[in-house]
């Protein structure tokens, strides 16, 4: 019964794809909105990175939604993992000399690289999400090297909440000062400078901090999930 069902589903999917495939030809030219973004994106926001210009400015509200989705999923994982405290695990095996030395050697450069990615989000490829993920991998290396280390969850949730709050605040400042949510109406600065492109670097630093702390807290919770912890923040 089960293989038959899978085969029927596969056949349905194949016919559907075959029917839809001719409709999915790439367009010859950009649509009106896309053409405006492509031609005006670098002029409107004076960043060197068109992708960032679209993601953070024109579609800043959607990015806020993405951040909220990430926040909710991490909160859900925290909620689920907190319930499994009765499990008894063997004590963590201490990390080997190689892992420890390598992690301590790489920790600072990787952390710096993550910060660089989200601070330079408007100039170079990458941005808050990518930088935050790189920061989280640095934190992961630290956790792997030192197995019984715990991250300060209170501090992490403060940073995370404050940066999320500041993102919304920046949006409302745009709403009241310039008439639209997240409007980029501050002095734009010189092309290619670190302090340019208006609010984009501000928002990307906030997103970077938020994503980095969120993912770090998630990794910490996952690596220590089964150990009984008395002091755990109720908000996470």
């Amino acid at each position: 019964m089960k293989p038959l069902f899978s085969l029927v589903m596969l056949a349905l999917l194949a016919t559907l794809s075959l029917r839809l495939a001719p409709l999915l030809q790439p367009g010859e030219e950009l649509g009106q909105v896309a053409a405006h973004y492509a031609s005006q994106g670098l002029v409107d926001n004076r960043g060197s990175n068109l992708v960032t210009s679209v993601v953070v400015n024109y579609r800043g509200f959607d990015t806020l939604g993405e951040v909220v989705v990430l926040f909710l999923s991490v909160t859900g994982i925290g909620f689920v993992l907190r319930r499994r405290q009765g499990l008894v695990l063997p004590a963590p095996v201490p990390a080997s000399e190689l892992v420890r030395t390598g992690s301590y050697l790489l920790l600072a450069p990787v952390l710096l690289f993550g910060a660089y990615i989200f601070i330079h989000g408007h100039l170079t490829p990458g941005g808050g999400f990518q930088g935050g993920a790189v920061v989280a991998s640095a934190v992961l290396m630290m956790l792997l090297a030192n197995r019984d280390r715990h991250l300060p969850h209170g501090l992490l949730s403060w940073i995370e909440s404050l940066s999320g709050f500041a993102y919304v605040l920046v949006g409302f400042v745009g709403l009241f000062a310039a008439g639209s949510f997240l409007a980029n109406r501050v002095p734009l600065g010189q092309w290619g400078d670190l302090f340019s492109a208006g609010l984009i670097p501000v928002i990307y630093v906030l997103i970077g901090l938020k994503v980095g702390t969120e993912l770090s807290a998630l990794l910490d919770q996952m690596t220590h999930s089964a150990e009984p912890e008395v002091k755990r923040e109720g908000s996470r």
Partner: peptide, 24 residues
């Protein structure tokens, strides 16, 4: 941009999270 996201999230973080879960 997408390549960085895929490398950082897809091949680094989610692999590690899956490994943690598998071990658990």
């Amino acid at each position: 941009d997408v390549a960085m996201t895929e490398a950082a999230i897809g091949s680094a973080l989610s692999t590690v999270i899956f490994l943690i879960v598998v071990r658990r």
